[in-house]
Simulated scan of single mutants.
Amino acid sequence: MTTAPAIELRTFTTLDTVRRDLIDVYADVRAPLLHLPNYAVTAFGERLDRHGTEPGFVAVLAYADDHPVGYAYGTTIEHGNRYWHRTTPAPAARYTERPAVALKEIGVRSPWRKTGTAIRIHDTFLTTRDEPFVTLMVNPAAGDGKVHALYRTWGYEDIGQSQPSPASPVLTVMIRASH
Score class of each variant (00 low, 15 high):
residue 30 R to Y: 14
residue 58 V to E: 01
residue 80 G to T: 01
residue 17 T to I: 09
residue 86 R to F: 07
residue 127 T to M: 10
residue 109 R to A: 08
residue 37 P to C: 05
residue 162 S to E: 10
residue 21 D to Y: 12
residue 125 F to Y: 10
residue 19 R to L: 09
residue 160 G to A: 12
residue 172 T to M: 11
residue 95 Y to R: 06
residue 80 G to D: 03
residue 85 H to S: 15
residue 108 V to Q: 00
residue 48 L to G: 03
residue 23 I to M: 13
residue 124 T to I: 07
residue 84 W to E: 00
residue 112 W to R: 02
residue 162 S to D: 11
residue 177 A to F: 11
residue 49 D to A: 15
residue 37 P to R: 07
residue 56 G to E: 04
residue 23 I to R: 10
residue 55 P to C: 06
residue 60 V to Y: 02
residue 7 I to S: 01
residue 63 Y to Q: 06
residue 64 A to R: 08
residue 122 H to P: 00
residue 148 H to L: 14
residue 63 Y to G: 05
residue 69 V to Y: 02
residue 170 V to M: 14
residue 126 L to R: 00
residue 81 N to R: 06
residue 158 D to C: 13
residue 3 T to M: 13
residue 28 D to W: 08
residue 75 T to S: 01
residue 167 A to K: 12
residue 45 G to N: 13
residue 95 Y to C: 03
residue 56 G to V: 04
residue 48 L to E: 07
residue 100 A to N: 00
residue 42 T to F: 13
residue 110 S to V: 08
residue 53 T to V: 06
residue 19 R to C: 10
residue 39 Y to R: 10
residue 14 T to Y: 11
residue 12 F to P: 03
residue 157 E to C: 14
residue 91 P to E: 05
residue 103 L to S: 03
residue 142 A to M: 11
residue 60 V to E: 00
residue 34 L to F: 09
residue 54 E to R: 09
residue 105 E to V: 03
residue 43 A to F: 11
residue 42 T to A: 15
residue 90 A to E: 11
residue 46 E to C: 13
residue 83 Y to D: 02
residue 124 T to K: 07
residue 47 R to V: 04
residue 80 G to S: 05
residue 144 D to L: 12
residue 60 V to C: 08
residue 170 V to F: 09
residue 38 N to T: 04
residue 88 T to S: 06
residue 9 L to H: 11
residue 4 A to R: 13
residue 95 Y to E: 03
residue 67 H to S: 15
residue 132 P to D: 06
residue 145 G to N: 15
residue 122 H to S: 04
residue 71 Y to V: 01
residue 79 H to F: 09
residue 142 A to Y: 12
residue 103 L to Q: 02
residue 147 V to M: 09
residue 123 D to M: 07
residue 96 T to V: 00
residue 49 D to E: 14
residue 133 F to V: 04
residue 5 P to G: 09
residue 122 H to V: 00
residue 87 T to H: 06
residue 150 L to S: 09
residue 177 A to K: 14
residue 68 P to F: 05
residue 74 G to M: 01
residue 18 V to Y: 03
residue 50 R to G: 12
residue 165 S to C: 05
residue 59 A to W: 04
residue 100 A to R: 00
residue 161 Q to K: 13
residue 153 T to L: 12
residue 32 P to M: 09
residue 38 N to S: 11
residue 45 G to D: 15
residue 77 I to T: 01
residue 177 A to Y: 11
residue 32 P to F: 10
residue 13 T to S: 14
residue 52 G to P: 05
residue 130 D to L: 10
residue 72 A to K: 01
residue 166 P to A: 13
residue 12 F to V: 09
residue 61 L to V: 09
residue 54 E to I: 02
residue 1 M to C: 13
residue 1 M to H: 13
residue 162 S to I: 02
residue 122 H to T: 03
residue 45 G to W: 08
residue 5 P to Y: 07
